[in-house]
Design a protein around this nucleic acid. Structure first.
Length: 564
RNA sequence: UGGGGCGUAGCCAAGCGGUAAGGCAACGGGUUUUGAUCCCGUGAUCCCUGGUUCGAUCCCAGGCGCCCCAGCCA
């Protein structure tokens, strides 16, 4: 291990940055303004992080700014809880939005004025059709739509009706404001899209002031323009909306002409990244909440112990492109391990304990052995670990009838206890069921620290914990939400959930120093994985989350030999 | 003959007419008081077919495949 480096930021190149460089060079824009526009109807997930890193990242790189903007145009779905959670997540990821947080709802007055402009210009009309009727007249993907009978109302009548919609004179759903574009367009978004609808709901910010709310299409581009956004970056599914985005900007007296560019969203294997589905998982109770450590949400990853830097590193290895693909979860795991390997201090913890008694070690003796906190980074120092006659080792580090290539403990075999002594197994104690319950061993006092003066080598080194000093704790192991890489996208994804996604281990033992653990101080339990303290932990019962396991080529080889 | 996109190794991708970067995964090997880390090594007739060109992953034409759109969701 040579240097500790969290991010490697070379000049990133992608078609969006290329476009920005060109716009800057040509003088089309002199300051880049982007925006991250979440709708506060759910928690942020790692897919959103791609957009966050892109938008905030570009602002940093080009010395511009990125607005955190809540796209709060639909009060029936949105909630203050999500507004707060989203801010916390963006901040935790390491981005700042300056003094001002933007809300689409800040512009409701201006947006309304713009709508009247469109009506005045004869480019929008109030339609009395029901939602079903509108759908029927919209045509299909291969057949053109038909004009609404209300399409040719005169300007005065439209203005009057629109104002009365605003005044709350009409029922929900009874009327909408539509743009007058082209019912025969091949692009369905241009077949007189709805701009305003009547909604009776209390808005998180504007309360009951408004009876009508702008749709995404009407609010988004105009809000971009009002805020001075220069590059409005969104995902591929909005590509079809760009003509409408441009049409509105072109026909309205907006202060700027933002441009929309689309990139592909992030898809990850073995999980699900659809907000609708994540909402369902939490609502139905398949997981404990939005921050369940199995969730691909920012809060879930955080609770699981994934550092923000690792997430950002992962995103930075992704490319911004227009090709839709699915990134393997192994890529994320790699980034998490890479960061944690460099930063996490090492500790010892025994997940599935097996008692080991050193018969030639004094009953009343306790030694303090020195262990390094990080094998590749001396600056992290050392610590002392108590050692005594009775220890716990990992059950899987002992085999009664071990194969040749098994380097660990077995009857008559000698191994090294990490940072301690060489120990040899003399006797295996079993209970009445024939299960191994204890190992009787002897140690070599000459091997203190782990080296034999006579040059004798052992092939295996195992971790341990002193029985009298260890802290009992609970350890939670997490596995993917879906065993099959693609099942998160399956129609019946709920039926395909991995029933082993959470494994709770009780009666684990960890070294005493772990009493100082915190949720944001990741540690490596040597030879097993990276862990952090769960927020449900308390003094009476420590609870650790396994963030990610260590790579295990031994286990992998065994899996190949006897797949089960 | 609806519209809009996309197609480079198992996965993500660079490439912008001069003869296929990089990362992940996988597989070998070395070091190792974590079977971890680290180090070294191994993989492509660029969806197909024609055309333009001295030369095409890149340009043109025609196919094929995949994705998105018919919310008063975003």
């Amino acid at each position: 291990m040579t240097e500790i480096k969290d991010t490697v930021d070379e000049e990133q190149q992608d078609f969006i940055r290329e476009q920005i460089r060109a716009d800057l060079a040509s003088g089309k824009v002199d300051k880049v303004i982007t925006r991250f526009p979440p709708e506060p109807n759910g928690y942020l997930h790692i897919g959103h992080v791609k957009s966050i890193c892109l938008n905030f990242g570009i602002a940093e790189e080009f010395d511009g700014e990125c607005h955190l903007r809540f796209d709060d145009t639909n009060p029936v779905k949105e909630d203050i809880e999500f507004i707060d959670a989203i801010q916390e997540d963006v901040e935790w990821l390491g981005y700042s939005w300056g003094e001002k947080i933007y809300f689409a709802s800040d512009n409701f007055d201006q947006l309304y004025q713009y709508a009247e402009c469109l009506v005045e210009a004869g480019l929008a009309y109030v339609d009395d059709l029901t939602a079903e009727e509108i759908r029927e007249l919209r045509g299909t993907l291969t057949e053109p739509g038909k004009n609404s009978p209300y399409r040719d109302r005169n300007v005065n009548e439209n203005i009057d009706l629109f104002r009365r919609m605003k005044a709350g004179e009409f029922e929900d759903g009874s009327r909408v404001l539509r743009a007058k574009i082209d019912m025969a367009s091949g692009n369905v978004n241009l077949r007189d899209p709805v701009l305003y609808r009547i909604l009776t709901a209390t808005h998180p910010r504007t309360g009951d002031n408004w009876k009508i709310y702008p749709t995404y299409d009407f609010a988004h581009g105009q809000t971009d323009a009002i805020e001075g956004v220069t590059h409005s970056l969104c995902t591929l599914e909005f590509e079809d909306h760009r003509p409408l985005y441009d049409w509105l900007i072109q026909h309205l007296p907006v202060p700027a002409k933002p441009m929309q560019y689309e990139f592909s969203r992030l898809n990850l294997t073995n999980t699900v990244l659809s907000k609708r589905r994540l909402t369902q998982l939490t609502d139905v109770g398949h997981v404990s909440g939005w921050d369940d450590p199995r969730m691909p949400t920012v809060s879930g990853l955080r609770r699981r112990g994934v550092p923000a830097s690792a997430i950002r590193d992962f995103i930075s290895r992704l490319a911004i492109s227009k090709t839709e693909g699915t990134v393997e979860a192994a890529m994320l795991d790699h980034c998490v391990r890479d960061y944690l390997n460099r930063h996490a201090e090492r500790r010892m913890g025994v997940l599935r304990p097996l008692k080991l008694v050193i018969e030639n070690y004094p009953e009343d003796k306790t030694e303090e052995l020195v262990a390094v906190n990080h094998p590749g980074n001396d600056s992290l120092g050392t610590r002392k670990i108590p050692f005594s006659r009775e220890l716990y080792i990992e059950r899987e580090d002992f085999m009664e009838d071990p194969p040749k290539k098994f380097f660990r403990l077995g009857p008559g075999r000698e191994v090294r206890l990490r940072f301690a002594y060489f120990v040899t197994c003399n006797e295996v104690v079993k209970d009445e069921l024939g299960e191994v319950v204890e190992l009787r061993c002897s140690y070599d006092p000459e091997t203190k620290g782990g080296n034999a003066p006579d040059g004798r080598k052992v092939k295996g080194t195992i971790h341990w914990v002193s029985a009298a000093h260890a802290l009992e704790s609970e350890v939670r192991l997490y596995n993917p939400l879906f065993e099959n890489p693609k099942d998160g996208n399956a129609e019946d994804y709920l039926d395909k959930l991995n029933s082993d996604s959470l494994e709770i281990l009780k009666g684990c033992f960890v070294e005493p120093l772990l009493s100082l653990a915190t949720w944001d101080s990741p540690v490596q339990f040597e030879r097993t994985g990276y862990f952090n303290l769960d927020r449900s932990s308390n003094e009476g019962c420590l609870v650790f989350n396994r963030t990610v396991s260590l790579r295990d080529s031994w286990a992998k080889e065994n899996l190949k030999k006897n797949p089960s």
